[in-house]
Simulated assay, not measured.
Amino acid sequence: MECVHDGCGSVVAYNGLHDHELACPHGPCDCTEAGCDFAASPAALIAHLRKIYSICVDMIPYGTAMAFIIQVLAPPEPRRPVFFYGNYGTVFVLHTYTVHPENGCVLASLSVECVRACGRSTR
């Protein structure tokens, strides 16, 4: 059976179709902005974030060392996630978290998530 996601075209056995469609890089991803019901392929999500929310989304080639300078804002400043994508169009979100311990130091941690298909059926 053929995958139903636009741009994929993979043909898989019937018993493996569900698993393929959940992991398919062309499956629909939900918009990360609160209240937005947009869902589309990773490539369309990147275009949506750029056009509708003016979010910068950069490409990061796999296997390449890169240095980042990420401004970490102290609460209650809003934390805007950083979006980027890899060679194959996979979308990633970088979140920053800040903590203010009692001694006045600011600690920051980073979390990277891979944006995947939301798992809803397209049939």
Rank of each mutant, 00 (worst) to 15 (best):
G104H: 07
I60Q: 07
A40P: 00
G89C: 10
C105H: 13
H18F: 08
A23C: 02
M66K: 12
S41R: 09
I60L: 14
G35T: 07
M1R: 13
P42S: 06
P42E: 10
I69T: 15
V112M: 15
R120T: 09
F83N: 02
G7E: 02
H5I: 03
G119K: 15
T122H: 11
N15A: 11
G119F: 05
F92Q: 09
P75R: 06
R80A: 11
A34M: 11
V12G: 07
C31G: 07
C3I: 00
Y97M: 03
L45N: 04
I70Q: 07
F83Y: 15
S10A: 14
C105P: 00
F38W: 13
H95R: 14
R50T: 01
S54R: 10
G7D: 00
V12E: 14
S111Q: 12
F92E: 05
E102W: 13
V11Y: 06
F68A: 10
L22Y: 09
H5L: 05
V112I: 15
A67L: 08
P25D: 00
L94K: 07
Y53P: 03
D37R: 08
M59Y: 08
V112D: 01
L94W: 04
H18P: 00
F38G: 01
V57K: 09
D37T: 11
M59F: 13
E113V: 09
Q71M: 07
P28E: 04
T98R: 14
R50K: 12
D30C: 06
C36D: 05
P81K: 03
V72N: 11
A40F: 02
L94G: 02
V106C: 14
T98C: 14
S10K: 12
L73Q: 10
L45R: 02
V4T: 04
L17M: 06
E21S: 05
Y97T: 14
E113P: 00
S111D: 15
Y97I: 05
H95D: 15
L22P: 03
C56H: 10
A40C: 04
I69R: 06
C24M: 06
G89P: 05
Y62N: 11
R50I: 01
L107Y: 10
I55V: 13
V82Q: 13
I70D: 14
G119E: 11
V57L: 02
